[in-house]
Amino acid sequence: MTFSRGAVEEIAAALAASGLILRGGFSFGDDQVAPAGPSGAPAKSVLLVGQAGAAPWPHFQRWLGQQARDIANPLDTWSREVIGAVAQGRGARAVSPSDRPYLPFQQWAMRAEGLKPSPLGILMHPTYGLWHAYRGALLFEDEIPLPDAHVAIHLCDICVEKPCLKSCPVDAYSGQGFAHEACLGHVRGPRGEPCRSGGCLDRNACPFGTDYRYPPEVQAFHMAAFARL
Rank of each mutant, 00 (worst) to 15 (best):
M1D: 08
T2Q: 14
S4K: 04
R5Y: 08
R5M: 05
A7M: 10
A7W: 02
E10P: 02
A14M: 12
L15C: 03
A17C: 04
L20S: 10
L20I: 01
G24F: 03
G24R: 03
G25Y: 05
G25E: 06
S27A: 15
D30R: 12
D30I: 09
D31M: 05
D31N: 10
Q32N: 01
Q32W: 09
A34F: 08
A34H: 12
A36W: 01
P38W: 07
A41R: 13
A41P: 00
A41H: 14
S45M: 03
S45L: 09
L48W: 04
A55W: 05
W57A: 06
W57E: 10
H59D: 14
Q61Y: 00
W63N: 07
W63S: 14
G65Q: 09
Q66P: 01
D70Y: 01
P74W: 05
L75Y: 15
D76H: 11
D76S: 11
D76G: 10
D76Y: 02
D76W: 04
T77N: 11
S79L: 09
S79G: 12
R80V: 08
R80L: 02
V82M: 07
I83D: 05
I83K: 01
G84C: 10
G84I: 08
A85Q: 15
V86S: 01
G89E: 09
G89D: 12
G91W: 02
G91Y: 14
G91R: 07
G91K: 05
R93G: 08
A94S: 14
S96T: 12
S96C: 15
S98C: 09
D99E: 11
F105H: 09
Q107F: 08
A109N: 10
R111M: 10
R111L: 14
E113F: 03
L115Q: 10
K116A: 12
P117A: 11
G121L: 07
T127K: 13
T127W: 00
L130Q: 15
A133H: 03
A133C: 12
Y134E: 02
Y134V: 06
L138R: 07
L138V: 11
F140I: 08
I144Q: 04
P147K: 08
P147E: 14
P147Y: 14
D148V: 13
A152T: 09
L155R: 15
C156Q: 04
C156R: 07
C156D: 11
E161Y: 10
C164H: 04
S167C: 11
P169E: 13
D171K: 13
Y173D: 00
S174K: 13
Q176C: 05
Q176D: 15
H180M: 10
H180K: 13
A182C: 02
C183F: 09
C183V: 10
L184F: 03
R188D: 14
P190K: 04
G192I: 05
G192L: 03
E193R: 12
C195A: 09
C195T: 05
R196I: 02
G198W: 03
G199R: 00
L201Y: 00
R203H: 07
C206N: 04
F208P: 00
P215K: 02
P215M: 02
P215I: 00
E217Q: 12
E217L: 09
A220S: 13
A224H: 15
F226V: 02
L229V: 05
